[in-house]
């Protein structure tokens, strides 16, 4: 509503965050939203919702972030939210092998609901931890094998890669990527059939000059 004159409506995109309990889905969102990190762990109850407007190049998009609970008892809620999401962000903890091993299961959830009509992003969180058990290469390999659209490692604690992740995800979105038609998602995904892997190493710093104005 802030535009002067005839309004240009914001394009909204649903992103659902999936992953085992405690992998840092909420922290990732909090880092992106408020650029903060809370060391105190509080399990998500049900599904949380947050939204943020992103200014990317000459386009403005609104990301609706659906933060799901990792606990098993809330698992039944998740399919309903996957169903109308354009992006599924599957998060694992690089220091927790179980969470990494569960990725195919999460992928199945998404594929069952959306088939190939979805952008799947694999996120290896907690990259700041010294006792990592999943290497970047392993993450990349799994991402490629499961035909994910993007793989990135992040650290919600120090903010590493978080902005970049959302920026990359935003660029993958069909309206940002190609045109104005939501139906073009197929094309967008086709273009990205070869999973776009962002080769990063944990000891590098967050790239500067991020044009994301969020």
């Amino acid at each position: 509503m802030s535009d002067k004159g005839t309004q240009k409506m914001l394009t909204k995109h649903k992103i659902v965050f999936l992953g085992d309990q405690g992998v840092g889905k909420t922290s990732l969102i909090t880092r992106f939203m408020y650029n903060t990190f809370d060391t105190h762990y509080a399990a998500t109850i049900g599904i949380d919702f947050l939204s943020k407007t992103m200014y990317l190049d000459d386009k403005t998009i609104r990301l609706q972030l659906w933060d799901t609970a990792g606990q098993e008892r809330f698992r039944s809620l998740i399919p309903s939210y996957i169903r109308d999401s354009k992006v599924a962000m599957i998060v694992y903890d690089v220091s927790n092998k179980e969470s990494f091993d569960d990725i195919p299961r999460w992928c199945d959830y998404v594929r069952t609901e959306r088939g190939n009509d979805v952008i799947i992003v694999l996120v290896g969180n907690k990259s700041d931890l010294p006792d990592r058990v999943i290497s970047t290469e392993e993450g990349e390999k799994l991402s490629k094998s499961l035909e994910f659209n993007l793989f990135m490692e992040t650290s919600s604690k120090n903010g590493y890669g978080v902005k970049n992740l959302f920026k990359k995800v935003a660029k993958l979105l069909p309206t940002v990527n190609s045109g104005n038609d939501d139906n073009e998602i197929d094309n967008a995904i086709d273009q990205d059939n070869n999973a776009q892997t962002i080769n990063i190493s944990t000891d590098t710093k967050e790239p500067e000059g991020d044009s994301c104005a969020c």
């Binding site: 509503m1 802030s2 914001l10 909204k12 599904i47 609706q64 309903s80 109308d84």
Partner: peptide, 25 residues
């Protein structure tokens, strides 16, 4: 679950709409 999730999405959407609508300058 689906029904209530739909209502949840709707609620969020309406909330966003309303916030945007009442974002008066």
């Amino acid at each position: 679950s689906d029904t209530l999730a739909y209502v949840h999405s709707l609620l969020v959407n309406e909330m966003e709409n309303a916030k945007s609508f009442f974002n008066f300058d």
